[in-house]
Simulated scan of single mutants.
Amino acid sequence: MEQVKLGIIGVGNMGTQHAKYLQEGVIDGAVLTAILDKNENRTKELNSVLNQDVQVFNDEEAFFESGLVDAVIVATPHYDHSYFAIKAFEQNLHVLCEKPAGVYTKQVREMNEAAKKSGNVFSMMYNQRTNPLYEKVRELIREGELGEIRRMNWLITNWYRSQSYYDSGGWRATWAGEGGGVLINQCPHQLDLWQWMTGMMPTRMRAFCHFGKYRDIEVEDDVTAYAEYDNGATAVFITTTGETPGTNRLQINGDRGKVVVEDGKLNYWRLRVSESQFNREYTGGFGEPECWKVDIPITGKETSHTGITQNFVDAILKGTPLIAPGEEGIKGLSLSNAMQLSAWTDDWVKFPLDEEMYYKYLKEKIANSTVKKEASSITLDVKGTY
């Protein structure tokens, strides 16, 4: 294969963006050849802006049987991510899936199994992994510069959304339409980065989610979560869509110092002697280790969506290692599922997550969702919705 023929499934906001840069020839070794969207009015609009050699489909069987694509970008609503990914794998196609991996881990686990069985390339659109700031934090942690991680705090409240935003679509911020609120819609990148940078998943979590606290919606719009880890480390994750001005501040403390990422900058304080060594050896009563504020060189630039797509294509053509392997999508989703489940049960949630319990509660939420009549065609099962 000299060139990857790419198809896009779902051409809402994100799907349209993918189509735009693919047609501009930004991705080496790839060409957009087909689009699938069930909305006929939308595809009629697309026909006027797409290259003539891009075929538009409303029927999924015709799309998959066309032979026009080697790989697909899945950019549908959340519930359909796993459904279309699995179908693509069954057709021996490579898959790049938009975030989140799905709505609940049970369906995502089946998607991962289908990917493994197919042997094809599977990637997630975790474009924040291309941000040099977060890449550097990961490097500092993985190479031991911070020592053993002790505490993580992420305050991410710059997701402000007005009521008019939620009113713009009857499916928005509903259990049947989106499967959640700020955690599933706005925060998947941060939840992914949280575990990707540290290489750690919690042992248990306690979360407090407020549903419709600031807006007339049925899903979570304010969350505070506390997590514990095997090594004794703790973490706090706070997010909301109801505050302005918001903050995006990540702080990670380790045995040898701390990093803070805020306002597009990385600040690093390094202890000359680790805290644990200082504590063992120091006999002077009051005192603490000498600390240096260190300038860390940040090189490169964030390549975002095009960077992940190029990496996906290179993995197909050249065997290049993936920046965001698809099977890792379940990790960040496990965190958001655990936060919701903890709030629903008013209790601690242990990891690995009880997927059957979460699925049971989610089905109950969907059955009582305000959008259930509009979404009456949705059939919820392990494979997702369609």
Rank of each mutant, 00 (worst) to 15 (best):
I184R: 06
S82G: 10
W269H: 12
Y126C: 14
E148D: 14
F278L: 03
D347C: 02
T385L: 07
N120K: 15
Q23T: 09
L341R: 01
W194F: 15
L341K: 00
C209G: 08
F351Q: 03
D381Q: 03
T43H: 02
D221G: 10
G29I: 03
V137I: 07
S162C: 05
H81L: 02
K365Q: 15
V31K: 13
N158Y: 02
Q52G: 12
M200H: 01
M152N: 04
G147P: 04
L6D: 08
L32M: 06
G264T: 04
I27H: 06
P289K: 01
N368G: 13
E65T: 11
F278E: 07
G169K: 09
V72S: 05
K213V: 01
N267R: 14
P321G: 08
S118I: 05
L140V: 06
Y359G: 08
E143P: 06
T309P: 08
G254K: 00
R172E: 08
T224D: 12
H81Q: 08
F122P: 10
I252Y: 05
G102K: 00
P325R: 00
N279I: 01
S118C: 09
A115P: 11
H305N: 13
R42I: 10
W154H: 10
N47A: 15
K331V: 10
G179S: 10
R215D: 10
V382C: 09
A71N: 04
L96K: 03
G326Q: 01
A225M: 03
M1V: 11
N311Q: 02
Q251Y: 05
I323D: 11
D381H: 09
T130L: 05
N13Y: 12
T130N: 08
S276T: 07
R206L: 11
G332H: 00
N267I: 06
A19S: 11
H81E: 10
V56N: 09
L362F: 11
S304G: 07
V26D: 12
Q310F: 04
Y165A: 07
G199E: 01
A85T: 04
H305G: 05
T240W: 01
L155K: 13
A343V: 03
K136F: 07
V313E: 06
V219L: 04
T309Q: 11
N248L: 14
K87V: 03
